[in-house]
């Protein structure tokens, strides 16, 4: 893993996500892709499992910095870290090489991370306003549409070619 390149990439993505949050996607400024979510799925499926743990939690930390909305740090560190690690483990058995599968992974990860984030904020008894359609459908959907195409330049920058293929060798009982 090239950690310096990873740090630069995360920094740029965090600044882009914070600074360009007012850009109107699909004619609605409240619907925007989540760059850090796309990176989470990319590293969970391309880095080896130990690095995937570190990258998932680091991206979660960046996501908490990028959204001062709730005034809390921690919910995204935990949700991104947990589900990023889970996806990394899952990727040992399910291949996400094809673009539609990557898009589906981003969409599902967007929903589950948003759900856990809200649960954790509620755990802190902070009043939360949930924009259901925006956070649980439109944002994951837009990220899923854009994500697979963003993976190509990200892979080029990280000098990673193709998806990680570290599958567990299936034991054949009758050999």
């Amino acid at each position: 893993m090239r950690w310096l390149r990873f740090a630069v990439l995360i920094l740029v993505a965090t600044i882009l996500q914070t600074g360009f949050r007012d850009v109107a996607w699909l004619g609605n400024p409240e619907i925007r892709p989540d760059l850090l979510l796309i990176l989470l799925v990319f590293f969970a499926t391309h880095a080896d499992s130990r690095d995937a743990v570190i990258t998932s939690f680091t991206i979660g930390f960046a996501a908490d910095l990028a959204s001062p909305a709730m005034g809390l740090m921690g919910p995204r560190i935990i949700s991104f870290g947990l589900f990023g690690t889970l996806l990394s483990n899952l990727h040992n058995t399910i291949s996400l090489k094809r673009l539609p599968f990557q898009a589906a992974a981003i969409f599902v990860m967007g929903i589950v991370t948003a759900a856990l984030t809200h649960l954790l904020v509620r755990l802190r008894a902070e009043p939360v306003v949930i924009h259901w359609a925006q956070e649980f459908f439109w944002q994951p959907l837009l990220s899923a549409v854009i994500g697979p195409f963003l993976c190509l330049p990200v892979g080029w920058w990280m000098l990673i070619n193709g998806s990680r293929r570290v599958r567990r060798r299936r034991r054949w009982p009758f050999r």
Binding site: V53, F57, G60, L72, M73, G74, I77, G81, L120, R124
Partner: peptide, 22 residues
């Protein structure tokens, strides 16, 4: 262990008062 350490850090961040994380 790495996962446990990071998870613990996340929980510490979560329960740190907002005035510090701000």
């Amino acid at each position: 262990m790495l996962f446990a350490y990071f998870m613990l850090s996340g929980l510490i961040f979560l329960f740190t008062p907002a005035r510090v994380t701000n």
